[in-house]
């Protein structure tokens, strides 16, 4: 009998606690809806903006093999952005609103993409580290409580399994190459390591969203747990490459069964989040220009569709 008199909020929480998914037409607290719009759209924006640092190297990839792989990866990221925007739209926000929020600087995207890609080795480091970090987060999200988001994540994880491998292969090739090439790989690791750790967000003690996210099973692991998992996975991978992670405090802790690692520079993190990273302005300018320069295509397609439907109508009369 309890179901008939249960308040919607209690029934919602019971469904979540029992491991059921929430679907678009189900009742949900307004905050759950808003949190998801924010999180899914940030994720979508990250895929779209994430194309830019890598796009920078497509024309300069060292071989055709590398070039087609990088093209395929960037193409996947566009697709992943589209899956995620569509998932966000099931919550009652339009694509135009989402895109406008990004272009107005009101919506965030992963800060990692505000760092520049200076050498070809950066493309290897991004695949290995940035995609590696993203995958840890995304594998967790395949079990998130909101159905459309979880399903998009399953698809994305499946497609993304090649991204990290192509990055690692680039690193491996450089590390087995000349001394200068190995230096390039080391330099890329030096620059991408700490920003990659920052991708998991503030520490649990500082994170404002974690508690509710866990209660609603939006996330199932905390920022610190995910970050630790990333470090534990990545250290042996760096050893195989024969390059050194730039952290003098990094060492295996037998008691914890995990690697200990040094303090993250949170000042740098917040500074980039607030818009003062090396490429924040360039990334947004590029996005806006792409959108504005593409306006005529969208308009032309809409006019063409309108014309075709008028034609069908007049033929019918």
């Amino acid at each position: 009998m309890k179901d008939s008199i249960e308040k919607p909020e209690a029934e919602f929480q019971r469904k979540i606690d029992e491991g059921h998914h929430i679907e678009p037409k189900d009742w949900m607290p307004e905050k759950y809806r808003k949190t998801h719009i924010r999180q899914i759209s940030q994720h979508a924006h990250s895929e779209i903006v994430g194309m830019l640092p890598e796009g920078n190297w497509i024309t300069r990839a060292p071989t055709l093999r590398r070039k087609v792989a990088l093209l395929a990866k960037v193409q996947d990221e566009a697709g992943h952005g589209l899956y995620l925007y569509s998932a966000a739209e099931t919550l009652g926000i339009t694509r135009d609103e989402l895109v406008d929020q990004l272009h107005a600087g009101k919506a965030k995207y992963s800060s990692i993409f505000n760092y520049p890609t200076l050498t070809w080795a950066d493309i290897g480091a991004i695949g290995w580290l940035v995609d590696g970090a993203a995958i840890i987060n995304q594998v967790m999200l395949t079990r998130t409580s909101y159905g459309p988001y979880a399903r998009a994540m399953v698809r994305i994880c499946k497609e993304e399994s090649f991204h990290q491998r192509q990055g690692y292969e680039i690193m491996l090739t450089l590390c087995r190459g000349t001394e200068v090439q190995k230096q390039m790989a080391q330099d890329a690791l030096n620059r991408w390591w700490w920003p990659s750790l920052m991708m998991f967000g503030p520490t649990d003690a500082e994170s404002t969203h974690t508690e509710l996210s866990m209660k609603w099973k939006i996330k199932r692991k905390s920022n610190d747990e995910l970050r630790q998992q990333f470090v534990d996975n990545t250290v042996p991978q760096a050893d195989i490459l024969g390059i050194t992670i730039p952290d003098k405090d990094l060492k295996w802790n037998e008691k914890r069964g995990h690697y200990d690692f040094g303090e993250i520079d949170w000042e740098e993190f917040w500074n980039v989040v607030k818009g003062n990273g090396r490429c924040n302005k360039e990334r947004l300018d590029t996005r806006r220009a792409a959108h504005e320069n593409g306006a005529w295509v969208r308009e032309a397609a809409a006019r063409y569709a309108e014309k075709q439907s008028n034609k069908v109508l007049s033929e019918a009369n």
């Binding site: 093999r65 087609v68 792989a69 395929a72 996947d76 590696g132 497609e159 399994s161 090649f162 990290q164 491998r165 192509q166 690692y168 292969e169 491996l172 996975n233 042996p236 991978q237 195989i240």
Partner: peptide
């Protein structure tokens, strides 16, 4: 013909874990 869209296309050492 786009085999490079699949993870098996990339040659990586066997001892590599978590990838």
């Amino acid at each position: 013909d786009k085999v490079y869209r699949h993870p098996t296309f990339y040659n990586l050492p066997d001892e590599l874990k978590h990838m």
